[in-house]
Amino acid sequence: MKKLLIVSTLLASTSLVSTAALADAPGSQSCGWGNMLFAGQSGTPSHVLAATTNASTGNNTFGMSFGTNGCSTTGTLTYGGKEMIDLSMIMDEFSEDVARGDGEAITALAVSLGVKEADRALFKATLHNNFNTLFPSENATTEHVVSSMFSLMKNDAALVKYTV
């Protein structure tokens, strides 16, 4: 009986806290009890504890579903990290393939980007014809190559659909 009373009390207080914590943050940014508990704090430990609190209780999922706990789904989701494609492990092979206009590395990249077979020749030709843009020096970074590649693709009517 005590367990039932404790669970009921927690659920009732959750509802009160949840409805009191309305906000308009997209997705899970500033969303959930973890963010409320650690509001104003910074640094990795605070972020990890906030994320752990949210994940272990599932309250940010509830909040996004019902517009509570400082959560909302009306905003646009963004990604502030690095590109998800990492050519650093095959950079030498990839640069050789781009110089030739064909090869396993450039084909693998096209496949991983979802470039349809009908568009792969155009993809390879675009990279090949812009080799100096992609690789302005021997020390071109992976970040530069990927960023330049996406810029080239965004400027092509047929390849733009494959950009992030």
Rank of each mutant, 00 (worst) to 15 (best):
L4E: 09
L5N: 13
T9N: 09
L10Y: 05
L10E: 01
S13W: 13
L16V: 12
S18R: 00
T19M: 14
A21Y: 05
L22E: 04
A23L: 05
S28D: 06
S28T: 10
S28K: 03
Q29E: 11
C31L: 05
G32N: 04
W33C: 01
G34Q: 00
L37N: 10
A39E: 09
A39M: 10
Q41G: 14
T44A: 12
T44M: 13
P45T: 08
S46V: 06
H47E: 12
H47G: 11
V48M: 10
V48C: 09
V48F: 13
L49M: 11
L49P: 04
A51W: 03
T52Q: 11
T52K: 12
T53H: 09
N54A: 07
A55G: 12
N59F: 07
F62I: 15
F62Y: 15
N69M: 15
N69Q: 15
N69E: 12
T74S: 15
T74N: 15
G80R: 13
G80C: 13
M84C: 15
D86C: 07
D86A: 06
L87V: 13
L87A: 01
S88R: 11
I90N: 04
I90H: 05
E93G: 10
E96W: 05
V98Q: 01
V98A: 02
A105Y: 00
I106Q: 03
I106M: 03
T107H: 10
A108L: 13
L109S: 02
V111I: 15
G114P: 10
V115L: 02
V115G: 00
K116V: 11
A118R: 13
D119M: 04
D119G: 03
R120A: 07
A121F: 14
F123P: 00
F123L: 04
A125F: 07
L127M: 08
N129C: 06
T133Y: 03
L134T: 02
P136K: 04
S137H: 04
S137P: 01
E138C: 08
E138A: 14
N139K: 14
A140R: 04
T141Y: 08
T142I: 04
T142C: 05
T142R: 06
H144G: 02
V145I: 06
V146A: 00
V146G: 00
S147M: 08
S148E: 04
F150P: 01
S151Y: 08
M153R: 02
K154Y: 06
N155P: 02
D156A: 00
A157W: 09
L159R: 03
L159E: 02
